[in-house]
Lab assay of single mutants.
Amino acid sequence: VSSEIYQWVRDELKRAGISQAVFARVAFNRTQGLLSEILRKEEDPKTASQSLLVNLRAMQNFLQLPEAERDRIYQ
């Protein structure tokens, strides 16, 4: 997982004009609270716990989908 993931998520929230709650639900089936905590802490993926890595990997995989497909999912 790239250490850029945190910025990618922030950029996607702005680009798509969606809330953290929507992104958390569709990208990795978690709550806004968890996403907020992940973004606030910005732990280095190289030293992250296994559970954090699973979530970061799910977010990264979601962000690799084509933009149009992500936008459809947000609706």
Rank of each mutant, 00 (worst) to 15 (best):
V1I: 10
V1P: 02
V1D: 03
V1G: 01
S2N: 15
S2V: 06
S2H: 09
S3A: 09
E4F: 14
E4T: 13
E4Q: 13
E4D: 15
I5S: 01
Y6W: 01
Y6F: 05
Y6K: 00
Q7G: 15
Q7E: 15
W8F: 15
V9W: 00
V9G: 01
R10V: 11
E12C: 04
E12S: 02
E12L: 04
K14G: 14
K14Q: 14
K14P: 01
K14H: 15
R15T: 04
R15V: 00
A16S: 14
A16G: 13
A16M: 04
G17P: 06
G17F: 05
G17K: 14
I18F: 02
I18K: 03
S19M: 03
A21P: 11
A21K: 14
V22R: 08
F23P: 00
F23S: 01
F23E: 00
R25K: 15
R25W: 05
V26H: 07
V26G: 10
A27P: 01
F28Q: 06
F28N: 03
N29Q: 11
N29C: 07
N29I: 06
R30A: 15
R30M: 09
T31I: 00
T31A: 14
T31L: 03
Q32E: 14
G33E: 15
G33T: 11
G33C: 14
L34W: 11
L34H: 15
L34Q: 14
L35D: 03
L35E: 04
S36R: 11
E37C: 05
E37N: 11
E37G: 08
I38Q: 01
E42G: 09
E42W: 02
E43A: 09
E43W: 04
E43V: 11
D44L: 06
D44Q: 04
D44V: 06
P45A: 03
P45E: 02
K46Y: 07
T47L: 12
T47V: 12
T47N: 13
S49G: 11
S49V: 05
S49N: 13
S49L: 04
Q50Y: 12
Q50T: 12
S51Q: 11
S51I: 06
S51M: 07
L52N: 08
L52P: 05
L52Q: 08
L53G: 05
V54Y: 11
V54D: 11
V54S: 13
N55Y: 12
L56K: 00
R57C: 09
R57L: 14
A58S: 10
A58C: 12
M59K: 02
Q60M: 08
Q60V: 06
F62R: 01
F62I: 05
L63F: 05
Q64N: 12
Q64I: 09
L65G: 02
L65S: 06
P66L: 01
P66Y: 00
P66S: 09
E67K: 08
A68D: 15
E69K: 12
R70H: 00
R70L: 02
R70A: 04
R70I: 00
R70W: 00
D71N: 08
D71H: 02
R72C: 12
R72G: 12
R72M: 11
R72Q: 13
Y74V: 00
Y74W: 01
Y74A: 01
Q75E: 14
